[in-house]
Amino acid sequence: MKSVWVLEDLPESHVWLGKALEAVFPGIAVQRYFRLADALEAARTLPPPDLALIDLSLPDGSGISLIKLLNDQAPATVCVVASIYDDDLHLMPALRAGAQGFLLKDQSWEQIAELLRGIAEGRPPLSPAIARRLLAHFRPQIHHYMTEPLTQRETEVLGIIAKGMTLAEAARLLGISAHTVSGYTKEIYRKLNVSSRAEAALTARNIGLV
């Protein structure tokens, strides 16, 4: 991770997140944005960063638009939601737009650092509520148009997480390594993004936009 953008309207939070970023990725280039419009402009013109920490509730809009734009223009960029919301109602849209993780701004910077390290190493966080949402999303009879359904293992992992167990416990229960479990979760997030795009395209076609 060489470069990171932080979209956040509170200066104190910039400092707080910066501290965590410096701890995990020493010497990383941090670009700060306070308004959504500036970040969107930068995404269109500047070279994309390796990592983006994005707040959802901004004075001039929702951070989800930046996640969508980056996901379109720079799929390599890892988008992480940094907000004060921890509920699936707020996080699910961001994940569908392409976010690969989420953290709470009010967590201690050590916790934030740990989460960021996990995300960078391909261990995205997954709460029981999000896992339940994902299970519902990938239920075959609802999304029959889905091109990439979940594998059985991926579904199993989601089921275990949905019961409140940790990734480590899931790995032990399934008799696989924690690393493999992380791989599954990452793959689940990717499929979520792909199916959400397909869904959006289908919706657009259905309402006559495309």
Partner: peptide
């Protein structure tokens, strides 16, 4: 209720483990 218990478990285990 199972969802509530799952959330409790996740949060409690995470906090205590940390």
């Amino acid at each position: 209720l199972p969802y509530v218990l799952a959330d409790w478990r996740s949060e409690t285990v995470e906090r205590l483990t940390l």
